[in-house]
Write a protein that binds this DNA or RNA. Structure first.
Lengths: 132, 132
DNA sequence: AACAGTATGTAATAATATAACATTCGAATG
DNA sequence: CATTCGAATGTTATATTATTACATACTGTT
């Protein structure tokens, strides 16, 4: 069994908010939304986010500087992530495709470098936006 | 034949600097280095960077907020990029692997979304750093 | 109780990026 | 040559994202 990760108060507050959101949240939007819960400073949010990313509860969408909750229940550590991003409505979905993740986890190039982690972001138009 | 892209003075100055660099450059480091050439404001640098990214002459390393010149001579548009990043020395290399790019260009998940673009960043330790 | 490691609170500031607006450049056309 | 139009530029100000530094508090272990 995995070692249970107990979250601190601040981490739980931030996680709850990100999990409830249907879209990626930016750090300062999180800050604004948790001020009533006592988190007053950016650093309190960033520290919670750092930890949550580290343990895989949330992921950062690098191209958007925004954070989403991990939808993949067995994702203990955030070392292999893939997302689809609609360039029109900005909808972001975590891709959970075992063929893709196997392919990337085993990928080797000729540099002799062994990769322990990757992040992949696909861009395009989602179904809705394509039909507009 | 492709339509020749003529670069403007600012774009050329920024491209020259990024091409000469052995490592990814940050926007404000670029700004500092081109001030002697007359680019005084951040926006002048960001505008040149935007255009250079758009036409595929440089790429943005999203996880580092930094820019590298494209090493792939036939990369006209920046729509399919993959990088390896050493988490110790921060060396960044563009991956040019046709199997990988074919695999990703053809990737389809069950969302019905057709991807026109992707960016992949691998992380690990480079050969040098692994042996330290 | 003492210690060590982690988390917190707070203020200040650094680093990254964009808005708004006036002006100029450069290629295409009349 | 003059006009036009879109792209690029210059400039100031400001928005957004993220970290440094330091003092304090919490938690589990010895």
């Amino acid at each position: 069994m995995e070692k249970q990760q107990y979250l601190t108060k601040n981490q739980q507050i931030v996680l709850d908010l990100v999990e409830k959101s249907s879209e990626p949240l930016k750090a300062y939007s999180i800050l604004f939304n948790v001020q009533k819960k006592g988190l007053k400073a950016p650093l309190q949010v960033y520290r919670a986010l750092d930890k949550l990313v580290e343990i895989g509860k949330i992921h950062k969408i690098e191209s958007r500087n925004a954070f989403v909750a991990c939808k993949n229940s067995n994702c203990v550590v955030s070392n292999a992530t893939a997302f689809s991003i609609c360039e029109s409505c900005e909808k972001v979905t975590e891709i959970n495709n075992s063929k893709l993740s196997k392919y990337l986890a085993n990928f080797q190039d000729n540099s002799g470098m062994k990769y322990s982690k990757y992040n992949l972001e696909f861009f395009g138009l989602c179904k809705k936006c394509k039909n507009k």
